[in-house]
């Protein structure tokens, strides 16, 4: 993996550090690590609080133990940070800042589709999401060829999958409450 590949951040393995060769980013680490540690302590505390409402002893042993371990690990992480051992854990932020609107557009389109499904039905919300994401992912200029082929291809894909799932696989996809 090299620097020119900006998607290295989603390392697919269990590796959690930067790819070898990436320069450590000394500017952001100072803030993120203690914030994350505090966040996980808070989550752990929230879990332990929730376990106090359980009626069955079998139910709380596990989450309470794990939450305690997580809090302990987060404290260790904070100590690591204090000792200056967490340098280079963060992925460079300059690549994150790039194309923020496109990233947000993608996420909003996906969540929007899920929320609109019960209302508009699966097909319509799927087409809307597909269109929105297509614009978010479009970097090439819209030539006449693309302007014709892409929407047709998109519609074929969405309708094709819709029919595959609803008719062949008999998945009861949301119909929507609006009359179409």
């Amino acid at each position: 993996m090299t620097q020119d590949n900006p998607t290295t951040g989603t390392s697919p393995g269990v590796s959690s550090g930067p790819a070898p060769g990436n320069a450590p980013d000394n500017r952001t680490r100072e803030i993120s690590t203690p914030i994350m540690a505090a966040l996980f302590v808070a989550i752990g505390a929230l879990v332990i609080w929730d376990t106090t409402t359980y009626t069955d002893a079998d139910s709380y042993v596990f989450p309470r133990t794990i939450a305690s371990v997580m809090i302990g690990l987060s404290v260790l992480l904070a100590i690591q940070w204090l000792l200056g051992w967490t340098k280079g854990d963060d992925v460079e932020t300059s690549t994150i800042a790039k194309s923020i609107p496109r990233r947000i557009g993608l996420v909003l389109a996906m969540i929007g589709a899920a929320l609109l499904m019960p209302l508009l039905g699966f097909l319509i919300s799927g087409i809307l999401a597909f269109t929105a994401i297509m614009f978010a992912a479009m970097y090439d200029p819209w030539t006449p060829y693309r302007a014709i082929v892409y929407p047709i291809a998109g519609a074929t894909i969405v309708v094709g999958f819709y029919l595959l799932f609803s008719r062949v696989l008999q998945v009861p996809l949301p119909e929507g409450t609006l009359p179409f």
Binding site: A114, A129, F130, Y139, G154, L169, V171
Partner: peptide
């Protein structure tokens, strides 16, 4: 497949696939 089609196709597959596991829109969210 060009990126402008690949990304929405994969995204759409995740939507329909996730929904179908338990027929649930909450799972998609």
């Amino acid at each position: 497949i060009p990126k402008a089609l690949l990304v929405p196709t994969v995204a759409f597959m995740t939507l329909i696939g996730t929904y179908s596991i338990r027929n649930s829109t909450s799972d998609v969210v």
